[in-house]
Design a protein around this nucleic acid. Sequence first.
RNA 1: GCCCGCUUGGCUCAGCGGUAGAGCACUCGCUUCACACGCGAGGGGUCAGUAGUUCGAAUCUACUAGCGGGCACCA
Length: 891
Amino acid sequence: MEIPKQYDPKEAEQHHYERWERNGYFAPEINQDPAAQVFTIVIPPPNVTGSLHMGHALQHTLMDVMTRHKRMSGYRTLWLPGMDHAGISTQLMVSRALKEEGKTRHDLGREQFVERVWKWKAESGGQITVQMRREGASVDWSREKFTMDEDLSRAVREVFVRLYDDGLIYRGNRIVNWCPHDQTVLSDLEVEKLPQAGKLYYLQYPIKNSDRRITVATTRPETMLGDTAVAVNPNDERYTDLKGQTVLLPLTDREIPIVEDDFVDPQFGTGAVKVTPAHDPNDYDMGQRHNLAQVVVIDAQAKMTADAGAAFAGLDRYKAREKVVAEFEALGLLEKVVDYEFSISKCERCKTVIEPLISTQWFMKMDPLRDLALDLMAREKKPRFVPETPYEKVYTNWLENLRDWTISRQLWWGHQIPAWYTPSGEVIVARSEEEAREKAGTTELTQDPDVLDTWFSSALWPFSTLGWPDETEDLKTFYPTSVLVTARDIIFLWVSRMVMSGMKFMGKEPFADVFVTGTILDVHGQRMSKTKLNGVDPLDVFDKFGVDATRLTLAQVGTTDTRWNEKQVESYRNFANKIWNAARFSMLYSEGAGVNASLLQTSPDLALHDRWIISRLNKTAREMNAALDAYEFHGAVQTLYHFFWDDFCDWYIELTKADVTAETDSPKRTEARSRLLTVLEHALRLLHPFMPYITEELWQRLPGEKPHHPAYSNAEPTVMLAAYPEGGPTDEAAESQMQTLINLISGVRNIRAEYNLKPSDKITVLAGLQDPGLRKVIEENTDQIRRLTAADTIDISIKTDAPKASAKFVLSGTDEVAVPLEGLVDFAEETKRLAKKKEKLQGEENKLRAQLANPDFALRAPAEKVQQTENRINEIQLHIKALDQSIENLQ
RNA sequence: GCCCGCUUGGCUCAGCGGUAGAGCACUCGCUUCACACGCGAGGGGUCAGUAGUUCGAAUCUACUAGCGGGCACCA
């Protein structure tokens, strides 16, 4: 079998996914163990309009690592995929397409427009599901959901009706955030506050029956046309005599009162505030407190209404502003205009300045729901946020200050509100029009034209996708889910609402843990964004370095904000190639051999390197399971990388090479070959959750017995259903002996490098080892040492009798190694080399001695620590003594 | 305004109470029979600053500075 020298990721990425999916490996049904524990993740449903970005790739990688790890560990796993109908985004996208045809949605009418959106979805929606397959995401496509599916829509209506019946959903006339561009109301969370350089206008209002004026400051002069009061702080002495007076509102024929309200800050502006209840949330509240009239002067198109007066009616709000200012100036009532930076509310999506308007909308009363979530946190500390800081606190604080949620939207694409109106204006809320007719006792019903906020259906995602309100098997099996993986920007929009609805309708939290990922920033530390065009396309990275290398890079990001670093991906591409070539070597010499798990049973009879790699493998497996269970992805990646590259490739393969590549067949050769293949096979399993493609590609090729986890015994061979190694016993003696061997070999190599010896220069290694155990280890490995240091002779004795012209190093305490270098040793240089080492040791000794000299140290530090320090000092002393001896011999 | 996070070698990041780590970059050597996307050997950091707690602090506490983020009804 020809195996190319270089790993081609595209080749491996081509076939396996299709096979995995076709064979049903992603579905929980593949697990045959009725007693299996359950592991569930529901995907944060990407927008149907969206395409894959780095944030998705990061989240998906982490979810896939978790899912694959649990699946291999015998859990019945479900990672449920799906998409969100993304109300406004989708409607806008289709509207834009219509515009190209010279039409608007109104030309089509509601029914045809919605049909058109469905058509768009069928043809070009859900690009991301194709891209997720490329990522290797092991989601169960047979359970894929869409928030507008009939079953999920049914859940939405059910929830609406129940909350309405509970009095938690109500219809009300209140001030709301209105986007004049998208022509819909928005919730507080869909509005972003942006700093804005603007002006503060000081307007003078004449007082009735007086020649005095009162000055108010405003950033929005046009709203003065809707003023219905001027407010001052009750304790503001400047205005004591004006209290209860009446103001003649300029540019209108209205007279408005001066009221007192604590809300007014005497320090700001003039201490007098114009009150426009119909166009400002604070003024609205003040209006409620003082029973003020609401004069609507701006309409849904952000144009002035007839109530703004004939001179202004029909004007755009900004034109009206100019005109108001001009007229005030003409009247001599414009006191001054100053530059002023303030924050302005904009539509998160289209960046249009929000117009606060009074409007009849549907709202959700949040307090009782909020309390469910807060209780859950207080009582059970759920959900558990990872990382706990700052998210637990941020989440809790937000809940504590929660206000009612505006849930209606003036859109066509979405779940139409299940409320009908009778001719007499009675409101009937029902699960269907049929039910509404029954309730109303009439067929003359009109359904509310509005739809629900997209997040209304997302809030139900963890149970609506599993069949709720029916008590399905899936719902019983998979709810509550295990962990939610998400970006931090939707903790309020989505996470908190899922907790509330989960508690309300399931009586149980929707997920145990919430893992909040970090953010991938661009190379300059800026957020990647479409408008900034600084985003890196994951698909380009896949093409350049392979999916597996990209996944490894993303996995180690974990919860930290990290700048995009292509070099990192490149290094993991190289790692993939290293894996490929280690496997290539193992299989090049696999004749007569095969994977055989029994060869990983350790035994004192085995060679040191075998006992060592078995111990290292077991330790690595334990660390991997611990790290993955603790969501420590960075540590997990590091552990894998160093086990595979340093332990397995740099040392184990080199040490087992002699046996593996032996010319003649023998049981020893077969065993060495088989053990190498077996260690590799286990390593591939450990790597699989992170690097699904290369591991499957190689695992399929390995000869020998590669059993599945017992839960999957019926399935065809695949690494994704092999057992994740749990890690057997470790062998500390073997690890420490091996470390000595490594130190010896590295020490000799160091001498070779420092003396610029050519690889062809043969050397003799003299080892003086007083410790009999150590001597035995080294004696048993003389051939290995000879090969790995390119030495001719290894001479082991109790004490070296090295010639003066030798380079030396101390292995430990009294054990030293010498390499005679007749004619090559510059005595002065060698003295310097040894002195440098001594100096370093001396520094350490001084530090430790100072510590020991502190009487409090002996008194307060744990005895074990004191002992350790003393031991280390003794060791250093022996080492220094040996160095001194060597230096003296050189003189 | 309030709250939070970050600041570790040239770069990107680990570590989070017991002598500073990785990858990349850098230096030197190597066509060593798996891999030059490689092999071997090295150099490089008073862990932002200050003051505390502690026998001992990159690691805990407080403050300061720089950067980043979240929340907030100041017209």
